[in-house]
Simulated assay, not measured.
Amino acid sequence: MKKELRFSHILAQLEKEKSVTFASLSLELNVSEDTIRRDIDELANLGLLAKIRGGAMPRSAHPLTFKDRIGYLSEDKERMALKAIRLLRNGMTVFMDSGTSVYTLVSLLPVAIELRVITNNAALIPLLGQYANIETQILGGKYNKEREILTGLLAVKAVEQFRADLFFMGVCSIDLQAGITATHQPEAELKRAMAAASLQVIALSDASKLGTQDPFAVCRLAEVSHIITERNADDARFEPYQKAGVRFL
């Protein structure tokens, strides 16, 4: 079983129970207790649980409570977020835009991670504010109340002042020929600016969006470093994209 699936199972069990044990998880997941110990260690380092003798329990001391973290997140988006977190290193400058996948990623960031996050996503502000070592830069622009984002020329010009290590892009549609496209023109323009100002572009998208198109072009797939979905990288539906050089995590 893939690590992300084990992580999701462990977190789901902790949502239902006050604690879990290495032995019970080993039986449920059909892996060794040593594997479970390593998983628990990694989840503890991410701030998602607390280690106890023989197992783990929810970590209520985390700045975002366990209930808050799990209650609004689907397992698929958790799986994507855990993959994305592996790409982060302390000291990075990161663009993050709109979308529930990006929101989930922020919700599951390691407790003590040190980042500069630049975003147009107003919904992220309360979450980012919970992390002591994250510097948050909010882009200006026209505020969309319904989508809780800022867009427009002011936001695009602000992006041009930065150079980011990574851009975690929430994705509307992905197509082998059309590349990544967006539903709204102002969002497409801002995504293009963020991509141009980043060393790596990481597209966060559930697999159902593959083979779909929207009216406004964002970027070609050749400009994307990785696509992160909820599925394993060897999923058969990715094969045409992989043959074209697209990398999945």
Rank of each mutant, 00 (worst) to 15 (best):
R89Q: 15
I202P: 01
Q177F: 04
I149L: 14
T104Q: 06
T119I: 06
Y131A: 01
S107D: 01
V117W: 02
D76Q: 10
L166I: 10
V201D: 05
V94G: 00
E160A: 08
L153C: 09
S74Q: 05
G91K: 00
G152K: 07
A207D: 09
A178Y: 02
L154E: 12
S74K: 04
L166T: 02
F162L: 03
L87V: 00
R86F: 07
D175A: 13
M80P: 03
L190E: 01
L176I: 14
I125M: 14
P110N: 09
T181Y: 04
E135L: 12
M92K: 02
D97K: 08
L166Q: 06
Q200I: 04
T93L: 05
G129P: 07
A122S: 14
L166N: 06
L190K: 01
S101F: 04
L105Y: 02
L154N: 11
A155G: 07
L87D: 11
L108T: 08
T100F: 09
Q161C: 12
T100R: 07
R163F: 14
I202N: 01
I134F: 10
A123Y: 08
E135I: 10
D165W: 12
A197N: 12
Y72R: 14
D165E: 15
L88C: 07
S101Q: 06
E160K: 13
M194D: 05
A182S: 13
